[in-house]
Write a protein that binds this DNA or RNA. Structure first.
Length: 502
RNA sequence: GCCCCCAUCGUCUAGGGGACUAGGACGUUGGCCUUUCAAGCCAAAAACCGGGGUUCGAAUCCCCGUGGGGGCACCA
């Protein structure tokens, strides 16, 4: 039998990074076993479903490179893959359980339930589950309530004694006493199923073989197992994935509880935030695979092609963890370094445009090799390359910025003048010629015959940025005309200073 | 309150009785290189939660604590 796994998000908004990790592990597992990865939408809570969320989730998965074999858009043998469109199926099986004596109708209202819970709390009994008072309703009493037109739900008749053992692929056997399991609602009064029913029914009919889901589902696993046995169905293999904690480790990472980690890294929780922050899908995949699982051989950086064959459920670390954001930063930088200049130019362009820069690949290309080693995120291109797009946002230079103890004003003036003349007159405005010429000029005018000090002043004169790409690449990217303009300004500034000094 | 899970450097992890003076990575610190910022290279500091067992031998197995987390909805 071939492996079939599913990722079953609720369309309540964006795709959470923890869910993305769950999706990734499911996907890796499916790919490893040449099985199917199924996308199913669990939208049975109509109050929480938000329009457009399904599309957002698919977009994020797609961006991450996690392709699914069956799903709402792709179809498949179990179409539809959206639970509200399968409502009749769940109702049918809920009724079947009632007929078989495995479930019953409950007429207690939400208010009554709530009141009883509060009373139990007050009596210091702590939280207690449903008291099962409708479980033993006589047929007459039930008929009476029915006749009165009371709303009802269908509850599972959980076994009252014995124990249920969950065999978890990551943790081994987990034993639960059955008297700890309450009679969960299977079908809500609005006719839609709860997670428990829909999940079990779908996983059965979709022939899901392995369920990789978050740790928080462990305590409901015995309920699910009992459901399988009531139905007479074969349960799948369970593997509960460790939770992703928030940066302080004080709970599940849900919404942003702090803006920065202790290390000073920005905290992101939605996949789209990672994308907008300039992270690469390859880096994010690698990063997520490393949280809770490790490649082995002391390797941190690897491709999915390399990781998939090694991926084993048994190797997943059961301990919950925070996200090492700073490691993602590093990984992303590593992947950026590996990119081809043209590829990087294309990747960086949308971020520049978002910042209001009209960037074309042709302009970007000359600085890309220099940018590769400088960027950890695509967004960083904005600050580095501002000088290419916004003359008015550059800093205004003073004579102090343009001179140095090894390059006094008079020499600076002479050097800049030569540089300007070169830019104005050269036939060859290319990286190599620029470099040779400018270095030679620098060596001639510094007191120690080293170009360094001049190159630094020159970079400032050309880029007008304290932090920028290196000089020569910047000159090429800026282009001859604009470089010349900036050098003219510089020469004029120095000329005033020198004449004043004289 | 009840049930369940988890526990190695700051963080992510390797480790599944002797090869552990506990390995790697990120981060941090120092150095080299250097036209800024990076990158790169080198080096350093940094951990087995506590207590009992089992064993010739325990980070590794068991028990008890402690700590952290999850669940206990007509939410998933």
């Amino acid at each position: 039998m071939s492996v079939r796994v599913r990722f079953a998000p609720s369309p309540t908004g964006y795709l959470h990074i923890g869910s993305a990790r769950t999706a990734l592990y499911n996907w890796m597992f499916a790919r490893k076993h040449d099985g199917q990865f199924i996308l199913r939408i669990e939208d049975t809570d109509q109050k929480r479903s938000v329009p457009g969320a399904i599309e957002m989730i698919m977009e994020d998965l797609d961006w991450l490179g996690l392709d699914w074999d069956e799903g709402p858009d792709k179809g498949g043998p179990d179409t539809p893959y959206i639970q509200t469109e399968r409502a009749a199926l769940y109702r049918k099986w809920a009724e079947w359980l009632v007929e078989q004596g495995h479930a019953y109708r409950c007429y207690c209202t939400t208010e009554e339930l709530e009141a009883r819970r509060r009373a139990a709390m007050a009596a210091r009994e702590g939280f207690v589950g449903y008291d099962r008072r409708c479980r033993e309703l006589t047929p007459e009493a039930a008929a009476e309530k029915e006749a009165a037109g009371l709303e009802c739900v269908i509850r599972f008749k959980a076994p009252l004694e014995g124990e249920t053992v969950v065999h978890d692929a990551i943790r081994g056997a987990i034993t639960f006493a059955n008297d700890q399991i309450t009679d969960a609602v299977l079908l809500k009064s609005d006719g839609l199923p709860t997670y428990h029913l829909a999940n079990v029914v779908d996983d059965h009919f979709m022939e899901i073989t392995h369920i990789l889901r978050a740790d928080e589902w462990i305590s409901t696993a015995p309920l699910h197992l009992n459901l399988y046995s009531a139905f007479g169905w074969e349960p799948p293999v369970y593997a509960h994935l460790p939770l992703v904690l928030d940066p302080s480790g004080s709970g599940k990472l849900s919404k942003r509880t702090q803006a920065f980690t202790d290390e000073g890294h920005e905290v992101f929780v939605k996949v789209e935030e990672f994308r907008d922050a300039g992270y690469l899908p390859v880096a994010l995949r690698n990063f997520l695979a490393n949280v809770g699982w490790s490649f082995g051989e002391d390797r941190e950086k690897f491709t999915m092609e390399e990781a998939i064959p090694r991926f084993e459920l048994e190797d997943i670390n059961p301990a919950p963890s925070r996200l090492p954001y700073s490691k993602l930063e590093w990984l992303n930088g590593q992947y950026i370094q590996e990119m081809e200049p043209l590829e990087l130019a294309h990747a960086v362009r949308p971020f520049l445009e978002a910042a209001g820069f009209e960037a074309d690949v042709h302009t970007l290309l000359p600085v890309m090799p220099a940018m590769k080693v400088r960027m950890k995120r695509l967004t960083e291109a904005v600050d580095f390359l501002r000088f290419l797009f916004k003359d008015e946002e550059t800093i205004s230079l003073t004579v102090d910025d343009l001179t140095h103890k090894k390059l006094p004003a008079a020499e600076a003036r002479a050097a800049f003048t030569e540089a300007r003349d070169f830019v104005r007159e050269t036939e060859q405005y290319d990286l190599e010629t620029i470099q040779q010429t400018i270095v030679a000029i620098g060596e001639r005018h510094t007191t120690n015959q080293k170009a360094g000090p001049f190159l630094g002043r020159m970079r400032l004169a050309v880029t007008r940025q304290q932090v920028s790409p290196p000089l020569f690449e910047s000159m090429v990217a800026l282009g001859r005309e604009r470089t010349l303009e900036r050098l003219e300004t510089t020469v004029n500034l120095l000329a005033e200073e020198v004449s004043e000094a004289a």
